[in-house]
Computed example of a mutant assay.
Amino acid sequence: MNTFQLSCFLAVAETLNFARAAEQLHVTQPAVTQQIHSLEKELGVTLFHRTTRIVRITGEGLAFLGDARRMVDISVQAKKRFEHPGQEAIRTLSVGCHGYAQLFLLSPLFRRLAQQYPDLHPNLRTVPFQHLYRMLDEGEVDLVLAFRQAEIPRGTQSVYRELCRVPMVCICAENHPLAAKKCLAPEDLAPHRLVLLDPARARLEAAQMQGQLIGDRGPAQLYFCESAEAAVVLVEAGFGVSVLPDMFIPPTALLMRIPLEGAEAVSFGVYYKAKALQSDPALKSLVHMLREEHWPREQLRGKE
């Protein structure tokens, strides 16, 4: 495979239209089609389902998307590295988070890190939790800031260090009937509509809690969201209540945070490769800053 094939694949994946992809790349549509066919033949999979009306990326295409982006990025970076031979080298550091709520926590830390390493070039990524360990093992990211997933699979190179424990809270709009409560039991939520995370995207503990809360509610009483940010928007708009880790909730949101009885705090921390930590001083400095940070609404500090 070559970078032109990968560029064609990425353009089609972005536009879901072969003609628009060709325009974006300044080539003909048959050229794009030929490159996609060649790439599919080499990989032995179908990357797109195509009809006369629509183009849809397949599961195999989605799995290949991150690899294709990484290969193109590496190719571009390699070319730029030698455009100006006398130019000062750059220090890359790739950090992933599961959502934008965690990404926003990094601003003050990167400000300090940039003073320590003036050549630093951060690369910030949102990382699907199901691909977390693979992305770390393959070097696609150097560190992931996330809520703890299941036990680390055997054979992977990543380690997890807890930074704090975050309480689960019920959130509702300021004018909601539950807004005046100081604490809630799960049965208090029974009469109210629920805003939930898609079970496929929720952590195990959150998915189990959601299953208990759903009870015998019908579809009209449930709103499923692909992200915590989307859930916050619907709750603030008055569509219902939700139960989320407190760290997901923007401080500017016009919401009430109410403790939920029986809800255990969830572990929040960092994943990284131990070998990389020893060989990359910028990564080591960032992990140290993360573990020293006073995290919002924390219950337990990570220990050295």
Rank of each mutant, 00 (worst) to 15 (best):
R69G: 02
E140P: 01
R125H: 08
L62K: 09
G66P: 00
K181A: 14
S75D: 15
F64E: 09
P122Q: 14
R165E: 06
A78G: 09
E162V: 05
F129K: 05
P153H: 02
E88L: 15
A179M: 13
F129I: 11
Q149N: 08
L178T: 03
T92A: 13
D119M: 10
R81Q: 14
V141S: 03
A114W: 07
P118I: 07
E60Y: 12
Q130C: 14
F104D: 15
Y133A: 05
Q130H: 15
G59L: 08
E88Y: 12
R91F: 03
V144Q: 01
K80F: 02
L106W: 06
H131R: 13
T156K: 03
V166T: 09
R81K: 11
C170S: 10
L124P: 02
L105Y: 07
Q130Y: 14
E174I: 12
Y117M: 07
Y133I: 01
A89Y: 05
R56E: 06
V95I: 08
V95P: 00
R70M: 10
E151N: 12
R70I: 10
H176C: 13
T58P: 04
Q116F: 12
R69L: 05
C164R: 00
F147N: 10
D137E: 08
D142K: 06
T156N: 10
C170G: 03
M71P: 06
R125M: 05
L124F: 15
L124R: 01
P122W: 15
A63S: 09
D142I: 00
A89G: 11
R165N: 08
I152M: 06
I152G: 00
R111A: 15
A150T: 11
G66F: 01
E174D: 09
E174Q: 12
P118W: 11
V141P: 01
K181M: 13
I152V: 10
V72M: 03
Y160H: 03
A78P: 06
S75N: 13
R69S: 01
M135Y: 00
H121S: 09
K80Y: 06
Y133W: 12
P108S: 14
V72C: 07
A180N: 10
L65M: 07
L105W: 04
G96I: 01
G66A: 04
Y117W: 13
F147Q: 09
L109E: 10
K181Q: 09
L113R: 15
E60P: 14
S158H: 09
F82P: 03
D142M: 04
E162Y: 08
L178M: 08
N123Y: 09
G96E: 01
I57H: 02
S94D: 07
A180Q: 10
S158Y: 06
L113Q: 13
Y160P: 01
L132W: 00
V127W: 02
D137H: 01
P108M: 11
H176D: 08
